[in-house]
Design a protein around this nucleic acid. Sequence first.
DNA 1: GCCAGATACTTGCGCAAGCAACTACTTTGC
DNA 2: GCAAAGTAGTTGCTTGCGCAAGTATCTGGC
Lengths: 148, 148
Amino acid sequence: MGIKDDAVEVRAQGWRTLAALHGSIEAELEKALQSAVELSVVEYTVLDALSRQDGWHMRMQQLARATALSSSATTRLVNRLEDRGLLTRILCADDRRGIYTELTSAGQKLLLEAKPAHDETLAAALASAELVPELEPLVKALGALQGV
Amino acid sequence: MGIKDDAVEVRAQGWRTLAALHGSIEAELEKALQSAVELSVVEYTVLDALSRQDGWHMRMQQLARATALSSSATTRLVNRLEDRGLLTRILCADDRRGIYTELTSAGQKLLLEAKPAHDETLAAALASAELVPELEPLVKALGALQGV
DNA sequence: GCCAGATACTTGCGCAAGCAACTACTTTGC
DNA sequence: GCAAAGTAGTTGCTTGCGCAAGTATCTGGC
């Protein structure tokens, strides 16, 4: 095996590690958010993204990118949250194709309620991942990223 | 904000970064594998995991863990691959509840065909992620993990 | 001004996922 | 040795996803 081949193998190994860590964290968050506030991980992601947005509104496309979802999935995701009264659609005045979504006060309230559960579960998931030998270095590396 | 609160925010930011990187790599692999050999990412993961296994066989449960899938999803995933002749089910002699899955030669062949596309796409996905400011540090960190 | 092509979102459809219930087998306790 | 509890895998059902096609709106060439 030459140096080049090693690089390929290192990348593949890194990807498997990344996927494994992502999968285990997501599964734990899913369970915790579901039982605490009946939200899926992507639903939480939407509420959280909106709350961290100036003016608390985003267009569908931005939301699609933030959640790594297709635009059709985003439509239905927003439908679900709108039906529960957690956000509202607002037509763009300047570009009438566009639609802004905005958190309602119920949405803000639910997010506040969900956040502690989310953060605790995330901490616990990272801690338990750190005990798995294959995952431990990546967890350490993740913690070392400066949070902007 | 105290030190404790910062740690929470750093973890949340790290998780968002991890999820974003995972999502973008997975999407690119999905497209590439689909067009090259009509495999999804998890299907490739199964074939790859089997090929890296001594004796080339694994039990359903192991497979479920390796793919982060439920056991019912694993059943149907193995069905799909079996229907395409890429692997076979073999009853365990020692524990008759268990079922081994094993790559067929067609499965090995397809995997060999898929691997270059997979590896190139992975390299390209990492390279392009490295150009995104938020993702760049994590990509660097991933490359620095020693591959066992 | 107006038509062609691009962009933003929605809808119809098929597919793969999870949960819960089921069957089959093994292990434990007495 | 046998009943109870546990484990391995499959099946029925519901849900959410992506793709492709559809509608509405904007933009650029002439």
